[in-house]
Design a protein around this nucleic acid. Structure first.
Lengths: 147, 147
DNA sequence: CCTTGAGTTGAAGTGCACTTCAAGTTGCAG
DNA sequence: CTGCAACTTGAAGTGCACTTCAACTCAAGG
């Protein structure tokens, strides 16, 4: 049926064509080719791109997104059920992330009240929040004895 | 009074010493020096570092954090009022960010229901959410005609 | 005093997520 | 059939937020 060029996809998804090529190199996306080797996408691929964008907003690396997308069937166009399964898993990620931000906000509000922002009593960033702490040191800001 | 070495600060804040030096180069932090040129921090600086960490969690760049911290008095130790002012501004940022994530979650939930994840009707990512879209292309995923 | 762990610097390296470039090819409108 | 915008590739460049390295100096306990 009507397929879309990389330019079409870029325009429709808001993701630059160069990024789409990059995603393909990284295994997040795959496009059919014309006889002349140009990429041709199906409209279903817009879902994939949407998913990538959403996951990035949640703060997930492309590597992790790639792994998630690998669960979708390769041979056939993913069904609603396929997407539902994946999406509900990511909803949990979102929930966790939101919960963390809410704790953060509540603690910060408390800190505004006392003007402290010192975190020894606030214990603002808790070490279980793995999602948000990728790449940072092992220790979190917590229970320093005084201040 | 008792001052803290860079190692102390690293241990207490959970931020690597190399990162603290980097923050200093970038103008987010400033430390006094001993006769032998070693950094000596005051405990109040732990607040600054805590603030940096919090702001990063919210997804703010060091550049923006630097600008925010520049509003604190340089000559004196920031008072509770100084911190309160800054913190309440950042609480708004957090609120916005949480609101966006909640919209994201609600929309995703809706998408799970219909299995679509297509975003044309969902309009999942709205263009006003500047905070989350740093560095990405100008167009957002929204109202593509079909699919 | 002397040793040793902790600190200092500038420069270079890393990882992620892209973007830009150069040189060439394709596909559609006129 | 031609012209030109849009596509192709690999390689190199970018920006952020750090980390690592080498060579060196400092500070404090025994």
């Amino acid at each position: 049926m009507e397929t879309l060029t990389i330019g079409d996809m870029a325009a429709r998804s808001g993701v630059a064509a160069s990024a789409l090529r990059y995603y393909e190199r990284e295994g997040l996306l795959h496009a059919a080719r014309t006889g002349g080797n140009q990429r041709r996408y199906e409209r279903a691929d817009l879902r994939r791109i949407a998913f990538i964008k959403i996951a990035q907003q949640v703060g997930v690396s492309l590597e992790e997104i790639r792994e998630a997308l690998a669960e979708l069937p390769e041979n056939r166009t993913p069904t609603k059920a396929d997407w539902s399964r994946l999406s509900s898993r990511w909803r949990h990620r979102l929930d966790e992330r939101i919960a963390m931000m809410e704790r953060l906000r509540d603690q910060l509000t408390g800190c505004i009240g006392c003007g402290c922002l010192s975190l020894q009593r606030c214990n603002l960033i808790n070490p279980r929040d793995q999602l948000a702490t990728r790449g940072t040191g092992p220790q979190m800001i917590l229970n320093p004895p005084e201040d």
